[in-house]
Design a binder for these strands. Structure first.
Length: 490
RNA sequence: GGUCCUGUGGCCGAGUGGUUAGGCAGCGGUCUGCAAAACCGUCUACAGCGGUUCGAAUCCGCUCGGGACCUCCA
């Protein structure tokens, strides 16, 4: 079960067995955020998807170096007439240093990733800190004759490259189609061909973020940073490169082209792409203006949200879909996820209270359940399938808890291990209940329920119900079971 | 227009050429002083039309619908 992991590789459009280049080491590079705005639900998807990958690979025993960049330079505003850098544009408006904007939104991003229980990457390089590496790489591409200088900018010669390589291996694009379909835009005349992309861009006079280079004061092209930084930290050839499907073309396609020319070979073994989260069937994205911020989800402060949704609800919601499928947002779906998560978490508590019996009941096969869980993960990180299996764990826990079935000590230990491993370590879910005062609340609740027990022994149900109702107002729910009362907190 | 993806029951979402995904919601039970929870049972499916096949929701073709990308947007 250990090394049967299969991953869907965008390059081959097939699931392939995952064999690291240099086991037990694994290198992963994932395109991180551009820090010019608050993180929204769209950011949570790649964050959680590749967190799952990171966690599972580590669980399998691999020594993973996970690199996720922060883009803090070089991306031009879509609709900007001036060609201003997004970050520079924001800085101008707020009259603060560009790096102040970068710092602020980087911190915000980290804050929300932490709340979603997304592990920190091994290395989080910033594009602005790797200008030298990018310039060096551009020089190599120029030396190979695959780029040209025009008006102080450097462009990658896609047409020439395509004579000897396939510009389209990843995306399936055909160069001729690209050329005939490219719109005429300002600045295009600098290029030999509209399909060419910038490696280095000369800064206009009003552009604040700029660095010196052999060609001009300017900034690197938007595909350069990922190529330069992935090579720097993972080598010229590494195992997995991830990112959203929206980055597939031209970003990743161009990364491949740049790296091939600079290093002489393919940079990445396996390309992984997570799909989008949609809102009313449409991609949720900053540029479309339909993104709901993670802040809004956590607070419930948004016209489209019926209530607040906790970080773990968001995490569970995302994990309930396979990463390559689109995931449609709705209050109904989120609330279903919330309830399902609660059920899963409650079972975890029940599990810790179970005691072993001499034998395990007929029809309960914990080992099978364990292998089913691994099988699900090994099949391209099929988290929905894993979760379905974990609900079978929940069912068994509840049945045993109700004394309708038994588990022997070995099976109980294994069931506990499965639960902890998959729910906490691999899916990265947390029990959000209680907070920092857990011990005190536990103590108080124990006391209250003891007193209520006495009241109930006297059949004073009015008092008993009053205690229960008042606690419910505090979001604490009392449940009277066969073995006495228990409680949960929302 | 080009490249690619996609269309599953009230909602969200897996999956396989012939056997129950799972969660949420609904319905009927059990349990309970009541309630909640839990357990048991149960109803709504595979966009449409053809084809391949002993058999397809699962493979192929067409039609219709949805989406992503095709821009120095990420």
């Amino acid at each position: 079960m250990e090394n049967q992991l299969h991953i869907y590789n965008t390059l081959s459009r097939k699931k392939e067995q995952f064999i690291p280049l240099d086991p037990p080491h694994v290198g992963i590079y994932v395109c991180g955020p551009t820090v010019y705005g608050d993180p929204h639900l769209g950011h949570a998807r790649p964050g959680i998807t590749f967190d799952l990958v990171f966690r599972y690979l580590r669980h399998l025993g691999f020594k993973v170096r996970y690199v996720r960049n922060i883009t803090d330079v070089g991306h031009l505003e879509n609709d900007a007439d001036e060609g201003d850098d997004k970050i520079a544009k924001r800085a101008r408006a707020e009259e603060i240093e560009p790096m102040e904007v970068v710092q602020y939104y980087s911190d915000r991003y980290h804050e929300f990733m932490d709340r979603l229980n997304i592990l920190k990457p091994s290395i989080e390089p910033r594009a602005s800190g790797h200008i030298i590496e990018q310039i060096e790489m551009i020089k190599k591409i120029l030396d190979q004759g695959m780029a040209y200088i025009s008006e102080g900018s450097v462009y990658f010669d896609v047409v020439k490259y395509n004579d000897t390589h396939n510009y389209g291996v990843l995306s399936g694009r055909i160069l001729e189609d690209l050329i005939s379909n490219t719109r005429e835009l300002d600045g295009q005349q600098e290029k030999h061909n509209p399909a060419d992309f910038a490696l280095w861009k000369k800064a206009s006079p009003e552009h604040i973020m700029r660095w010196p280079s052999p060609w001009s004061d300017g900034f690197p092209g938007w595909h350069m940073e990922c190529s330069a930084m992935s090579i720097k930290y993972l080598g010229e050839n590494f195992d997995i490169h991830g990112g959203g499907m929206d980055l597939l073309f031209p970003h990743h396609e161009s990364e491949i082209a740049q790296s091939r020319v600079a290093t002489g070979h393919d940079p990445v073994r396996c390309w992984m792409h997570n799909n989008m989260i949609t809102l009313n069937g449409q991609k949720m994205g900053k540029s479309l203006g339909n993104a709901i911020g993670l802040e809004q989800f956590f607070s419930g402060d948004h016209p489209l949200l019926e209530k607040a949704y906790s970080p773990m609800t968001i995490r569970f919601f995302i994990l309930q879909a396979q990463y390559r499928g689109t995931l449609d947002f709705s209050n109904e779906a989120l609330q279903a996820a919330e309830k399902g998560l609660k059920r899963l978490m409650e079972a975890g508590k029940q599990l810790s209270r179970l005691s072993a019996s001499p034998t395990t009941s007929e029809g309960i096969d914990i080992k099978k359940l364990q292998s089913d869980c691994f099988e699900a993960m090994n099949d391209d990180f099929n988290s929905p399938m894993l979760i379905a299996n974990l609900f079978e764990v929940v069912r068994i826990v509840n049945v045993v808890s109700d004394a309708n079935a038994q588990l022997n000590a070995e099976d109980l230990a294994l069931l506990t291990e499965i639960y902890k491993t998959f729910v906490f370590d691999i899916l990265g879910l947390m029990d959000e209940i209680g907070g920092s005062n857990t011990e005190m609340i536990d103590g108080l609740m124990h006391l209250i329920l003891e007193l209520r027990k006495q009241v109930r022994a006297n059949k004073d149900y009015a008092s008993s119900d009053k205690i229960r109702d008042e606690l419910l107002k505090l979001k604490i729910q009392v449940k009277d079971g066969k073995e006495g009362a228990s409680w949960t907190m929302d």
